[in-house]
Design a protein around this nucleic acid. Structure first.
Lengths: 360, 360
DNA sequence: AGAGTAAATGACAACGTTTGCAGTGCAATC
DNA sequence: GATTGCACTGCAAACGTTGTCATTTACTCT
């Protein structure tokens, strides 16, 4: 049977406390905040704190915000998508943001942004709750004009590189951009495969509209071209950053007689799908085919075989984004050094890759 | 080279707009909000909206909050843990919360709660940002006294059943509790295995301190006991809700000659670990051993073999929690029917289970 | 043209907290 | 004993927006 609960309409405020103790609201205000607490006589302060505790007093945030002009909070804008945490990217980034913010005593808002199919992004932005001191944006891709518009809100704004369309130079955006050095990460990944003796390498890439995907593709091909190992066109497959892309792509590539001996995947999810497809085709990983991922999410070490992959330092990226927003908000008007260089992505070698032709 | 950016210290307010157009602030306020926009003459309204747009005006949230008394936002309290999104539970719940909140125009804050090893929960709660109209709590386990304290803040509060210690009756908490019917979900799961002919069943469970784990354990054993198929004690293994628990547990159980023919796991992650361990031991799933999960996260369908599992309707649970908070906040003082019954968890049959002794 | 009505606008008082300033007392100093 | 200094407290004015109420303006109808 449903029970019923109700909540007092009015909560205790600073004046209620003041009148009940017959002191002025000023005194209560001073006693309640650590910075000014020394101004109040000790016994009186104790009295006030006790009553506040008993009444579960918490200061009206609106009033405080109005008076002080700032609020220690930032908004993270994520895409409106049922399964955003399926991809580990958002979860890991968000987790990093939470930590970085908590360390500074900041509050984190999350806001979903849905771009209606035919409509303007501007319209979608209307619904953004802008009651925070800064924005970290990792939702829908943004054109330079969109960025222009967003930065017009005059709040500290940080973008993740992933939201910029491929080809737009980061420097010219005029807004801090945080991101990972996909290019050298991908180069390292491809280099390892070459070093292990693989030359017949298939590429399972992300969507062509994604900057991350493009940068990684370029990194892979840079290295492979240099040694004349560019994959034949039908071995270069693009799709979403999902296990399904890996499954379908690997299934197609591994069905032929002269199949690739290694698969270089643009995300861990794709790699997982590829490993499963290989297994379904009766091939073992890494004995029959090596698989390389990209991201190093929590599953990479927990799956089987443990995935060789490129570590995206997303927590560090988030830390950098939060740090900028907090700095900028704390020093309004003054100019802040914006983070501009990418964080490097290191190779993590585990069990899903093996030297070509090496014994079991 | 690092570039530098800066932000205007003061943002345009409603009075700036008013004076520049030589109208009163009241008119601007009315023109700016859809509900009252019809009160101002069309041409003037357009003038105002245009200028506001040009100035990137957005109303001071503090002032608005102070004036209106409410703010359409709620806080989700999650544990302070580097890898919270590794477990799919939080990601899926949060995603559901975001949707439910967005549908109502509400804003979502996220707050991490870290209980210092020896210290009181009260202390940790001090750092909670309470500037929202409601709380959805899914962090550290709460004793009834803790709940008492939390509800003293006189804000709408919803708990997930998982945070209550096993044995505490939901009814007596006096606070709305949302959750999943673990008991019947687990019963259905065990029934399926029996129905497939399995009687030698191993149980890979969650931590004994977790209510979810205890309820699921009870559900499994209820059914197995009824037909005299209670697993021998060494086949009942408890651990964290992680792949490692599944890996280690399955490795131990499957190493013996008279191994179980089916493994019933208390979470998808455990099941994934178990499948990998089976594979490492040279056993195939589902041919040699059936594996049952619990949760039906996004990976359940994407992994290989696709996992038979119990679907936790976390999005619905979140929807229910948000719905309660919003209702309670919108009708302060009045009593709201609190959700009390669990949402049912349905079996999803995929490829990781098979009838005992069935042909390949 | 004047009365009567409806539409549009302005003046003003909240909302709860913080803070500069102007007091009070009270002890210490010359 | 008058004066200075110090510790503490109260007064009152912000902060930016919204809603009530009163007032002005525009319009319709005899």
């Amino acid at each position: 049977m449903p029970e019923r609960v109700s909540y007092r309409a009015t909560r205790a405020g600073i004046v209620q406390i003041a009148t009940r103790l017959s002191v002025s609201p000023s005194t209560v205000s001073r006693a309640l905040r650590p910075e000014t607490a020394h101004l109040v006589r000790a016994d009186r302060r104790k009295e006030i704190l006790d009553l506040a505790e008993r009444l579960h007093f918490s200061p009206n945030p609106g009033a405080r915000m109005l008076r002080k002009g700032v609020n220690a909070s930032l908004t993270v804008v994520v895409p409106f998508d049922e399964n955003i945490f399926f991809s580990e990217f958002y979860g890991r980034f968000l987790s990093g943001t939470l930590h970085a913010a908590a360390a500074r005593g900041w509050d984190v808002h999350i806001c979903t942004l849905r771009r209606q199919p035919g409509s303007d992004l501007r319209e979608a932005l209307q619904h953004l709750s802008l009651d925070t001191s800064g924005l970290i944006y990792l939702a829908e891709p943004l054109s330079p004009a969109d960025v222009q518009h967003l930065s017009g809100y005059r709040r500290p704004l940080v973008l993740t590189k992933s939201v910029l369309p491929p080809g737009v130079p980061v420097k010219e955006i005029g807004v801090p951009v945080v991101g990972v050095d996909n290019l050298s990460g991908a180069q390292t990944a491809a280099s390892l495969l070459l070093q292990l003796g693989h030359v017949r390498i298939g590429l399972l890439l992300g969507p062509s509209g994604s900057r991350d995907a493009q940068e990684r593709k370029k990194g892979y091909l840079d290295v492979l071209d240099r040694v004349g190992a560019r994959p034949r066109p039908e071995w270069i497959i693009e799709g979403s950053f999902s296990a399904e892309t890996g499954r379908a792509g690997a299934a197609a590539l591994l069905a032929t007689a002269d199949r690739p001996t290694a698969l270089c995947c643009a995300s861990d999810e794709i790699a997982f799908g590829a490993i499963n497809a290989a297994r379904a085709a009766g091939l073992r990983c890494p004995e029959d085919v090596s698989v390389m991922g990209f991201d190093d999410g929590p599953w990479a070490a927990a799956c089987w075989p443990a995935l060789t992959t490129v570590r995206q330092p997303l927590a560090d990226v988030a830390e950098r984004a939060v740090s900028f927003v907090v700095e900028a908000a704390n020093h309004p008007g003054s100019s802040i050094t914006s983070p501009s260089s990418d964080l490097s992505a290191a190779l993590v070698i585990r069990d899903s890759t093996r030297a070509l032709g090496s014994p079991r």
